Each structure stands twice: as structure tokens, then as C-alpha cells.
Amino acid sequence: MNRFHVHLNVADLDASIRFYSELFAAQPAVLKPDYAKWMLEDPRVNFAISTTGRAPGIDHLGFQVDSSEELAALGKRLDAAGGAVVPEAATICCYARSDKNWTEDPQGTRWETFHTFGEATTYHAGDAACATDGAACSPDVASMKPRPQQATSCCAPQSGCC
């Protein structure tokens, strides 16, 4: 695992950017009208905030990895942990292009594991047929029919998403 990931929904982006910039002693690495992200080294975390329609608070937690092989290995660990694993290949989310695996822990906290391989010009792809809610780029895992985790992240959720 290369970098811990936290995504918060916030009510006031500007106030939150000021707060977290002071807390982290750093400006966001990515700053958009509805989104900000800090790629911190100490602690090593991808910390993102957005104002995209969900209630303020933790949206999801996760791990960002550096390769598709690491993503596949982490997907196997998620599968072994007993959660339903929902893969998303080549998705656009949070102004980035990524392959992902989603799951929920026993309490219902959403977990995202992902490998980012490029930038995007939009927050999300906006595919109406996709189970991803667009508000936060994270799928409603319970509404999707996950496939067993594969050796690679080549397979999209059965819903035909993304």
C-alpha cells in the first residue's frame, strides 16, 4: 500500500481549504471549484475534500497504489476480507483516470482502492447508466452485483457501469 486515502464531503470548500492548508502546512496539489486534494508525504496520505452534494463528513477511505499489479493484489486481500468487491476499470473520478476496486466494511464504510494513470478535465464521467452516484464518484456497493475479484482489474461491475 503506497498512500492512505481519505475523502471528506464539506459544506464550505473555501473555509475547509483554509483549515486544511493550515493544518497540513501546505496548499492543495489539486484545486477545482468543487474539489481540493493534498498529496502529503508526512503522513503519506491522499486527502481530498469536495462539495458535490452529499452530507458533510467522511465519504470513503482507501488506498492509492502505484501499479495495476498492486491494485490486483489489494483486491485479492479485500476479497479475502469477505466484502463484496466491485471493480471499476478506466473510470473518471475526482479529476483523474483510475482503475478501482470498491467494497464496504462490516459497518458500511466505503473503501476505495485505486491506481491512477492520468488526469481528467471533469470531476466524474457523468454516465447516467452507471451505479456510481456522480456526487462523490463512489458507487452504491450494495446496489451493484460484484464479481469475484480477478487477477487484474479488467472487469467492470455487472451493472455495465463505466
Score class of each variant (00 low, 15 high):
V65R: 09
S21V: 05
H60L: 01
R54T: 11
F19A: 15
A55L: 10
Y20H: 09
D34C: 13
E41W: 00
A36G: 05
Y20V: 07
Y35I: 07
R44T: 02
Q27S: 13
E41A: 12
T51P: 00
A36D: 01
P28I: 07
D34K: 14
D59S: 07
F19Y: 15
P43M: 10
L71Y: 04
G57L: 08
V30I: 14
G62M: 07
D59W: 00
A29W: 02
R54V: 07
E22S: 14
D59G: 01
F47P: 08
L23N: 03
V65N: 09
A48L: 09
I58K: 01
A29E: 12
G53L: 04
E41H: 09
D42I: 10
S68E: 14
W38M: 04
F63R: 07
Q27H: 10
A25Q: 14
A25C: 04
L61Q: 06
D34V: 15
A26N: 10
P56N: 02
W38R: 03
S67N: 08
F63C: 13
A36E: 04
R18W: 00
L40S: 06
Y35E: 04
V65M: 12
A55S: 13
G53Y: 02
K32H: 15
S50L: 13
E69P: 03
P33I: 05
Y35T: 08
S50C: 14
A48R: 03
F47Q: 06
F63S: 04
L61P: 03
G62A: 06
P56E: 02
H60G: 02
K32W: 06
K37W: 05
S21M: 11
E41S: 13
L61R: 04
E69S: 14
P43D: 09
L71M: 08
D66Q: 14
